[in-house]
Amino acid sequence: MSVALPLSVLAPPGDSLASAVLTTLGISAAAVLASLPFGLALAWFLARRRFPGKALVETLVATPLVLPPVVTGVLLLLVLGRSTAFGGWLTSTFGIDIVFTPTAAVLAAAIVAFPLLVRTARVAFEGVDRELEQAARSMGASPVRVWSTVTLPLARRGVTAAVVLAFARAVGEFGATLVVAGTLPGGRRTLSVEVWQRLQSGDPGRAVPFVVASVLLAFAAVGWGEWLARPRRQHDGRRRP
């Protein structure tokens, strides 16, 4: 799964504002889309199943939430870097070199956003009435059908919120991205890395347009989430008792 090609089409090379915004949006969207199937499956499992080691899984999922992102980045580098066992094997066997590619940026964003996706979606699944799922099964629906026709539709607001939160977190990602994907091919950088680069150059003024863009993007992402999660009136205004 390479995101290099779509990204090179989406975002122009160089350190322009447009390039930074489009690189950020592209990487964040790819990160959320790639982690969505795993995230929803895991969220459902945590919400509905008891299994040995559940507490450990919960802890592992939540850890990136509290880990300094730069540490997450270093861990990624240790695993995937060309000089490490796994990374070296990837390079020699498949010719895949992940570090400092858009794939690394997507991976970094996905890892830091994953806990928010899973935890929010889990709460959404927990809120679905199990008795409705039972009813669906009694009418002949297989467990997978029950999930897609009852559980997911009923959890859709919470799942949407999970996606928006994860996306917003990916947009704001800085530390891990800086370590594994600071500057991408074509000189593309995410907004946050670009802001940091420009600060490093000694003239904070050069960072201002990027700071403004970041604020607007964050505002838009959160606003979008709020709009999607707004309470909706029932068709005729009556509510279920």
Partner: peptide, 25 residues
């Protein structure tokens, strides 16, 4: 069911069609 358990995200028709559309067999 004693408590009916209609699917709140569906219409009456959607509820009645459920066994036919989503049931195995």
């Amino acid at each position: 069911f004693q408590d009916s358990r209609l699917f709140p995200h569906l219409t009456v028709r959607g509820n009645l069609d459920y066994p036919r559309r989503h049931g195995t067999g």
